[in-house]
Write a protein that binds this DNA or RNA. Sequence first.
DNA 1: ATTAGTAATCGGAATGATTACGAATAAAGG
DNA 2: CCTTTATTCGTAATCATTCCGATTACTAAT
Lengths: 131, 131
Amino acid sequence: MKSETYRNTKQRSRILEILCHTDSHPTASWLYDQMKPEFPSLSLGTVYRNLGILEEQGLLKKLRSGSTFDRYDANTYPHAHFCCTECGSIYDMRDVEIPDMVQTVNKQTPHNVLEINLSYMGICEECLKKK
Amino acid sequence: MKSETYRNTKQRSRILEILCHTDSHPTASWLYDQMKPEFPSLSLGTVYRNLGILEEQGLLKKLRSGSTFDRYDANTYPHAHFCCTECGSIYDMRDVEIPDMVQTVNKQTPHNVLEINLSYMGICEECLKKK
DNA sequence: ATTAGTAATCGGAATGATTACGAATAAAGG
DNA sequence: CCTTTATTCGTAATCATTCCGATTACTAAT
Ligand SMILES: [Mn+2]
Ligand SMILES: [Mn+2]
Ligand SMILES: [Zn+2]
Ligand SMILES: [Zn+2]
């Protein structure tokens, strides 16, 4: 499942760099489009495989709540999201302390809670303006 | 998008009935397998279409957090879920009052928060026993 | 009860995001 | 350099879900 050693490739480090410099929670194909000019022979499968590797290295998180395609987040500190059901955009939220919630909930269940996915769904500020 | 009038069909009402009598958050294909003996000519597309119709009627909710396939929940009262990353099972949680959270969060954001998706991820009680 | 209108069904094909493959390439250590 | 093998690329396969057109069957009006 996991490889023994990881190598540094231009493609992988650029994927992580792009993710670290945006707060837009990109999709795999958006990353592909961004990188295609710089890597003309880039394969979409390479983007997906590297996203998977970066995830198992703990350098990013895959977001699957929301639409039909996954989004990726290099902000690994536990935080809530706002997902706009109109335009699909995702915003970071910092008003709830997720780590505290994990502690609290673990005392209330027989299960072992490891992390929390918290998403607020609704209409974003931009989409509200357009009405 | 939406049809003008809905008709009562045996297939649709049975789907809702099954969902109302389970707390296991079934998948479309699980519902299909359950109903196949009673409806030998049932089509999987019929299950999906009816789940969509029941959702737009507000009689169930689609759960997309977690794995690669959707699950369905006829418990429409806002509640949190525990999702086991080992076996994929989903449990209802009632320790957090979601409606109160919606109120609170709306005062803290410029967006319009309509609902909250809250999932605890981890290892369930059953899977913990097997270790 | 008959009829007309049109949702809903079924079966299969299409879609779209993601994953898997195998041959060629390139990172990394000696 | 040389060797090893992780990684790439291009393409094919997968899998859940949606779409299609012909047929069926609700429902309300006659
Ligand atoms: Mn984020
Ligand atoms: Mn539930
Ligand atoms: Zn929006
Ligand atoms: Zn489990």
